[in-house]
């Protein structure tokens, strides 16, 4: 019933299945999540924006977006590292800089230094294994 309520409130027909998969207690691969929807990027963004519980559902959705669609969600990434109400997503992005294409990771890293937790950003960016990303803390 709870899942049905969640489904009725949302227009995206794939959302129920994606949210259920993201709510699993065992880790689910991004590939299998995305196989449940014909619009993976839009659906996963919708999950991040609208689903609150369980807390790992939007976090897993954001993780898949970062790992597989970073170039498509540049505006969201900028928001996640600067919005004070998204401190958890900020940590997620800062922990994933190295898996993003460098052309998106560098500007997002710069944005994070102006964000809500510049000290954390400086530490995480400085620990990057990618020279171009690490350079952001030297030449912002």
């Amino acid at each position: 019933m709870w899942m049905l309520i969640a489904g009725q409130a949302l227009a995206n027909p794939d959302l129920d299945a994606v949210v259920l998969a993201l709510s699993a207690r065992d880790a689910v691969s991004c590939e299998s999540i995305e196989a449940l929807t014909s619009t993976p990027t839009a659906t996963l963004v919708e999950v991040v924006d609208t689903v609150q519980m369980p807390p790992w559902a939007p976090m897993r959705a954001a993780n898949c977006l970062i790992e597989r669609h970073a170039l498509e969600i540049h505006p969201q990434l900028d928001q996640w590292v600067t919005d004070p109400n998204l401190a958890g997503l900020n940590r997620l992005v800062l922990g994933k800089l190295d898996v993003m294409p460098v052309e998106i990771a560098v500007p997002v890293a710069r944005k994070a230094l102006e964000g809500t937790d510049p000290e954390l950003a400086r530490t995480r960016i400085g620990a990057s294994k990618v020279t171009e990303i690490r350079a952001v803390v030297v030449t912002p």
Binding site: W2, A6, S23, Q52, M53, A57
Partner: peptide, 13 residues
């Protein structure tokens, strides 16, 4: 031990 969390809105069962 159920393998899924069942949630709606801001709460879970």
């Amino acid at each position: 031990m159920y393998p899924y969390s069942l949630c709606g809105g801001s709460t879970c069962r």
